[in-house]
Amino acid sequence: MGLQRHRMVQGQEVAGMRGPSPIPTPDPVLTVNGLGKIYGRDDAGTIDRTGSDAGSARDPITGAIVAAWDVNFEVAAGEAIGIVGESGSGKSTVLRCIAGDLEATSGDVRLSTHMEGRSNVLLADPATRRRMRIDQLSVVYQDPSEGLALSVTAGGNIADPLTAAGVRSFAKIRERASELLSRTEVPLNRMDDIVRNFSGGMRQRVQIARALANKPRILLLDEPTTGLDASVAAGVLDLIRGLLEELDLAAVVVSHDFSVIEMLTNRCIVMHHGRVVESALTDQLLEDPHHPYSQRLVSAARA
């Protein structure tokens, strides 16, 4: 696989450590430690009463939902990590806490692009976090309406991050938008059409183009092909894989679909009821899952 090869070139041998603890990554671009998100009222016993072993993310006593707890991982440039689990397992919550869409309850998230990784971005004020989204970290959502303004043209959607980054030349915006749309295989004669008139697959391509506008170091993908027809999804996946190889991005891919995880990532973590139950190299996990929940997921995917 391309990403594997890339890593071999870098000579970064992965320890292949199993279990829920993180696999250390040299020079991580994104570091996540102890990330947690709780909804509702919790108390001192909430964590013990929830999670994979407890069989629920919901605290039976207080009613609090522990959507994610004690999530740790690191991602280096040119590497993609997968977060896999069923819907409701907390994987999207993790991604949204990193992106700043949700306020985390606890944890420490560092980006090498933000104060050289010396500061926990979860503690940064909302304005600073929004600025990171301009040129350091981008998100591609499952639902394009979250990442795009549907009433705006494809070019206008790309103009948004470009102008936020200070580009003030109309010609340069057009040029960069054309470049990105070409790269994401959106026909250029559709550049001035509003995104609402685009098909699902085409909207995802525009969303990806927009996410890459200011050459971010980190790309978070939340179920990027879920809901697309199989053939369309395959095309978008190919595109994403090509981009990850080409752009030296640190990527996090959230998906319930092992074929997506298998195609895009070299390492992944498995989440169940808000907890990480297994952390492994993707191909190892697929061949020999250790945790019973992972085994169930893999056998369901293989069926």
Partner: peptide, 10 residues
């Protein structure tokens, strides 16, 4: 800026 861009394009 996007609204100005869209205006100019349209």
């Amino acid at each position: 800026w996007v609204s100005l861009y869209e205006d100019k394009v349209r």
